[in-house]
Amino acid sequence: MAHFSQDPQILHRPATLKRVLTSFFLAFLFMLLPWSGTYLLLRPDVLLLLLLYWSVHEPRLLGGWSAFTLGLLADAADSSVLGIHALGYSLSYALALQYRHRILSFYRLDQALHVLPLILLSQAVTAGVMFFLKTPQPHWIWWLQTPLTTLLWTLLPFWLDRQTTAPADPPRAA
């Protein structure tokens, strides 16, 4: 699928399912590293970041079920109440899908400003559910996860974009 996210002159090849799955696999390993203390509070939610990235760039490869399943896996991995991440991811994914054309029409930094509320929504859902479950909230620096994850939106996809950019066609022999 061709789109013009970064430079209108560059055509993008569609990402293969293998590439999408590999990126999710790496993101999962990143989430499962032995985080603790302040690092845990600041751990960027790369799973959500990739989910948003692929839902904006390759909406046909993922469905609502993938957001839900990823959320459940994240809940099990973080030993939190099952369904919290699933709820946040499902909401963010649906909104990203709704506004994908708008997001794609901007350059990377402006895109990040659109992605920030989506990531914040997922985090706010977590905080809200934990509030209703009467669990004390973590230290305020936990909220820095959202800007950090958004910052990654401006950096991480360069690699992903490069992988999906079509090489210049060699001149054909007449």
């Binding site: 609502g64 957001a67 839900f68 459940l72 109440v81 709820l87």
Partner: peptide
């Protein structure tokens, strides 16, 4: 899409209630 969103959100909320 809205119907799907409602479905997954309801499922997630059900999970939260049943688990917590």
């Amino acid at each position: 899409p809205l119907a799907r969103l409602f479905f997954y959100c309801a499922l997630a909320l059900a999970c939260i209630v049943v688990d917590a």
